[in-house]
Design a protein around this nucleic acid. Structure first.
Lengths: 247, 247
DNA sequence: ATGAAAGCTTACGTCTTATGTAAATCACCC
DNA sequence: GGGTGATTTACATAAGACGTAAGCTTTCAT
């Protein structure tokens, strides 16, 4: 079924700044950060609505809307008369990039960092294999542009390299054309950001990484499914090495 | 790491009924269902807040809280003066069980069903392998209880079998002790529910499935990582067969 | 006639106040 | 001593007012 999009919908890209300047977003970020940071532990109760209003200097409306958002992310649950309590960590939507963005020091969360890398080693090789099978010309162009972006900015603009690296991995996942994998790009984004915070950007490591990226791209281009999987595995080996060496 | 829970938090399990009786939950479900059902397509604008209030017969407060929840799930974005618009599908948090629950006919969404199964074939064998490496005695007991639940209810109580089947897969993922995989149980739950809706419950198929489940359990018990992966692959082969035969 | 700037309009954002409701607590009666 | 009912508490809902920014229109100067 083709989805019909009104012509006036062009240009309606979702805004990027999730921590926008609005009052209720500020409250969401504040409370989310405190929960992710352990200030409000699972099982603990948040202050009463009225107290939160006084503490944060905002109206009850804003606090309530913020609690609704946190509740939608699985971080808290509000019950009549009993207050708002932090839910067990298993309920947190940790794959939601917004939630991960509230983590005050994601790179110090050992379980999370290793869990993210482990997950990447599970699904990224599979995504590369699917991409080798299904990538369209546009998908390939997108991945190639990311590789070019890495090459062009080594070793000058480190930030641009990280951004291109991220675009590469997002491109591969998009090329897999699998809805579930596409749902994980947010998680991947956070994982890479955490990695960039930890790994010392040595030029040698960067060039090694670049050649690994090129290998994945070429395997996808020639529809070599096994090769794409193997190349992505090598790429992740390198990433894991860097993480262990410098973490 | 064991999470510390205040003593007064005992009994604070998250409530299961997400489509609860509250007004704003009703609005969320209604609008979420319409969006997932395609009534409001990506790029389209929802009616104005005031109009929604009139249409649904609720206050603006409830509508606004509902929009906040939908926004947190990535389904819509509200902008000043411009209204509330449905975001592109790639932004939807489809891995969120609540979002999947809004899908009016998940088993008819071909791309989604096949994508879910494909994702399961990526994650679940890996989860089984990790479980074989890390499962605690409690994890094993949980998985064994699920297998017993399947065996005891074949072929009488089909519903109980499905529930035990789900518990089995959740148990394996929990035993993997990977934070990302644990974030996918909601997705898995929806995938299995969709599968149960499609596959005709033949007794022969059930007994085949049961023996495959037992094989996974035994491999995990004896810490046979490769065997656990292989057994889970066989189990998913059977599931895929059933899906193709009956879908 | 064209284009930019100023102002107007609109619809979401925020705050306030009032009232409803369920659940926890406590008191009272059996 | 235990159970039932009144009370209290804190979240849930509603309604109204005002703020604000984004889109639209008008106007004026080039």
């Amino acid at each position: 079924m083709e989805t019909i999009v009104p012509s006036d919908a062009i240009g309606w890209m979702p805004s990027v700044d999730q921590g926008g300047a609005s009052v209720h977003n500020a409250v969401v970020s504040t409370l989310g950060g405190r929960i992710l940071g352990g200030e409000y532990a699972p099982g603990a109760a948040l202050p009463r609505e009225d107290d939160l209003c006084a503490m944060l200097g905002v109206s009850r409306t804003s606090v309530r809307e913020a609690v609704k958002v946190l509740s939608a992310k699985g971080l808290v649950e509000a019950r009549r008369r009993a207050g708002v309590r932090v839910l067990p960590r298993d309920n947190w939507r940790l794959l939601d990039p917004v939630v991960l963005g509230w983590h005050p020091a994601i790179q110090d969360d050992e379980e999370l960092v290793s869990g993210l890398l482990e997950a990447r080693r599970i699904f990224e090789p599979a995504a590369a294999e699917l991409a080798a099978r299904r990538a369209t010309a546009a998908d390939l162009a997108e991945i190639e542009r990311a590789v070019d972006g890495m090459r062009d900015n080594i070793p000058n603009d480190l930030n641009a390299v990280c951004q291109a690296d991220l675009a590469f991995h997002k491109g591969v996942i998009a090329a897999s054309h699998n809805v579930v994998l596409k749902g994980l790009v947010g998680m991947l984004e956070a994982a890479l950001r955490a990695t960039f915070l930890v790994t010392n950007p040595l030029m040698e490591a960067q060039s090694r990484a670049l050649s690994a990226h090129v290998a994945v791209l070429e395997a996808i281009r020639v529809r070599d499914t096994a090769g794409a999987r193997a190349a992505m595995n090598r790429l992740l080996d390198i990433a894991a090495d860097d993480l262990h060496a410098k973490g």
